[in-house]
């Protein structure tokens, strides 16, 4: 067994797992030599293979307290020790992983031996770590967004999958020489001097994943259109669109309330725009004018 430490935003995790177990390459970008936070603040995972996932599930279900939340790819329930999750690929018959919280900051994870080769995929491996829950302890949350670095600030293009988030980020790379920190996700953190976007070890099909943090200049909610238009998104419409793109454990009301509290603060402090756009330099120009006008106002 080997133990490796990682820091994602301000959240630190330690994974103890078989040395030969594959691990997503993107996660290695977040590796640190030694924990920087106090011992009790590090989330520790014991990870192993099993050829009896049904047996482990059965034992945990016997300890279940309260009801079960069920969806096609995930089952969640509580035991006295904490939260348990069974993970499945959509449409599959069998679960491929089980995660059981054993203490406040300790988790035990079992992967079915048959998925060994798939553990290099960030979504497969990291889904078992319930990272969205861990970062929320540090008041951070994950925004489904293409994270673009623009003049050392973060511009986050957010929208439902398939809208063209990374395509817009690509357009900026082409026409303005910006670079993409993550093609699909960013971690939003409220630091003492404002909001920052941090890197995230999952990047979907974009394959662009970097561990960099920049202050958030703007969040841009995208939608496809034939004419280019950018305007500020405010009030409940901004809440509605943003909340739909934040990773929230919907079954956990405490988590949801915290997310909404943070969202209210974010909306007061970060400009949120709606951009209706096509794929062209004009789309880039349209948003650029808006960003530059706002930064002149700030100055």
């Amino acid at each position: 067994m080997v133990t490796r430490n990682y820091r994602i935003g301000h959240t630190e995790i330690a994974l103890t797992m078989p040395e030969e177990m594959p691990c997503p390459e993107n996660l290695s970008k977040f590796r640190i030599a030694e924990p920087e936070r106090a011992k009790e603040e590090v989330i520790r995972y014991q990870i192993e293979y099993t050829d009896d996932i049904e047996g482990i599930k059965g034992q945990l279900l016997e300890m279940k307290t309260g009801r079960e939340i069920y969806r096609d790819d995930l089952t969640v329930f509580q035991t006295e020790q904490g939260e348990c999750r069974f993970l499945k690929f959509r449409g599959a018959k069998q679960h491929y992983a089980v995660s059981a919280q054993e203490q406040d900051n300790r988790y035990h994870i079992w992967f079915d031996k048959s998925v060994e080769k798939m553990l290099v995929f960030d979504t497969v491996f990291l889904a078992a770590l319930c990272l969205e829950k861990q970062v929320m302890r540090d008041d951070a949350w994950i925004l489904h967004s293409a994270y673009m670095c623009y003049h050392d600030t973060a511009v986050l293009f957010s929208a439902p999958s398939g809208t063209g988030k990374s395509t817009q980020a690509d357009q900026w790379e082409t026409y303005r020489g910006t670079w993409t920190v993550n093609g699909d996700k960013s971690l939003l953190v409220r630091e003492p001097d404002g909001w920052y976007a941090h890197g995230w070890p999952i990047c979907g099909s974009s394959e662009i994943c970097n561990n960099k943090a920049y202050p958030v200049r703007a969040i841009v909610m995208l939608s496809q259109a034939t004419e280019n238009r950018v305007y500020p998104l405010k009030g409940i419409q901004a809440v509605r669109e943003l909340l739909a793109q934040i990773t929230v454990n919907g079954w956990n009301s405490e988590f949801q309330i915290k997310a909404m509290d943070r969202l209210e603060v974010l909306l007061q402090e970060v400009p949120v725009y709606k951009q209706e756009c096509d794929i062209s330099e004009e789309a880039v120009r349209c948003l650029e004018r808006c960003l530059e006008t706002d930064s002149r106002k700030d100055a």
Binding site: R67, I69, Y70, R71, K234, G235, I236, A238, V239, R240, L243, A244, G250, W251, N252, S253, Q256, I257, M260, L263, E264, L267
Partner: peptide
């Protein structure tokens, strides 16, 4: 969850209901 956000009153699905209904 019944709460006020951005000056509006909203109902947000939680618990098992969050798996049945999206949005607010």
């Amino acid at each position: 969850i019944l709460r006020e956000i951005a000056g509006e009153c909203v109902l947000v699905p939680t618990g098992a209901t969050s798996q049945e209904f999206n949005g607010m």
